[in-house]
């Protein structure tokens, strides 16, 4: 890894803008990612996550605005940016007819990694990712999770300081997803900076910083704790025999900010003053003998559902 002068942020973007025809994918966006962060870009499909990452990765030219990676412009100093970044696109983008080892070899060679380094890094990366026994398998015959790990391994072959990962875990089974995040955690410990886009809210908890993107703009950003703190009240789960009827009844109660179905449970965001468990049982009591209420931890899903519904007026106005 190259040394990074202290105080330099890994990514600094100002006023980034990109349109595709009439669609504004990214709108006047500012982003700061500190060196060493695991920065999660959350948001639904079409929020602009990929467009943002591709502009920072130098593969897409912004219409307006500027972005710097370790102090170098992504448009005017591409040659200084690309050696220090590893970009993993959302789609599987390895050669399907080449083996795992051949793909690593090819991309590392064109990225200027010397032969000795190529061999030793490929070996250690494949081992640490549990891909060693599949080194000679053609990429097209890998499972979804293994394909993603191959892409990550390829991204890491030249030892980049900044990883730009575009939905690396989308469509991957839960076990592989956990495995993938374990690898990202170890990269974080090595001091690398990670910018990762994901549609999975639960993955936000694994990031040091997160930003919530919607319709081309960052709606919320901060540490997971800071963002959770923006949600007032407490979260409760109500179990009942007839969740739909319970949901209808709960929403009408005073002190309930919002409620939604979560599997067979009704999740209630309580902003009232009274003790919520007693108040809910009292309010719903009599309709259902099997009714139980318990407190739950506020998760990111709830946070973003709340924040989306209670979006600041300015954001809502310009976002449409």
């Amino acid at each position: 890894m190259q040394s990074t002068s202290p105080g330099t942020s890994a990514i600094s973007a100002r006023g980034l803008h990109k349109s595709f025809g009439a669609t504004e994918a990214v709108i006047d966006l500012d982003l700061d990612v500190a060196t060493g962060a695991v920065y999660g870009l959350l948001g639904p499909d079409g929020a602009g996550k990929s467009t943002l990452i591709r502009m920072i990765a130098t593969v897409l030219a912004p219409d307006a605005g500027a972005a710097e990676v370790f102090g170098h412009s992504v448009t005017d100093q591409r040659g200084k940016v690309t050696p220090r970044i590893g970009y993993m696109s959302q789609r599987f983008s390895m050669y399907p007819d080449l083996s795992v080892a051949e793909n690593l070899e090819f991309f590392a060679t064109v990225r200027g990694v010397g032969r000795a380094d190529r061999n030793s890094r490929a070996k250690s990366l494949l081992e640490s990712m549990g891909l060693a026994e599949f080194a000679d398998r053609q990429a097209q015959h890998l499972s979804g999770g293994m394909k993603q790990k191959l892409m990550l391994a390829s991204t890491l072959m030249h030892s980049p300081d900044l990883l730009l990962l575009d939905e690396p875990t989308t469509g991957v089974d839960p076990v592989s997803r956990r495995e993938f995040w374990r690898i990202l955690a170890s990269l974080h410990r090595e001091g690398r900076t990670v910018l990762v886009a994901t549609p999975y809210m639960d993955e936000a908890e694994r990031c040091t910083h997160i930003a919530f993107l919607d319709r081309g703009r960052i709606r919320q950003s901060g540490t997971p704790e800071q963002i959770k703190a923006r949600v007032p009240g407490r979260l409760l789960e109500v179990a009942s025999a007839e969740p739909r009827r319970t949901l209808a009844a709960v929403i009408a109660l005073p002190g309930v900010d919002s409620a939604h179905l979560f599997g067979d449970l009704v999740r209630v965001l309580w902003t009232g003053a009274a003790d919520p468990i007693e108040a809910l049982i009292a309010g719903l009591g009599g309709t259902d003998a099997s009714l139980t209420v318990r407190a739950a931890n506020i998760d990111m899903e709830t946070v973003f559902a709340y924040l989306a519904e209670n979006a600041p007026a300015d954001a809502a106005a310009v976002g449409s």
Partner: peptide, 13 residues
Amino acid sequence: ALGTEEQLLVSPM
């Protein structure tokens, strides 16, 4: 079509 073009774009090639 394979998406490998983008990987080549981030290389010095």
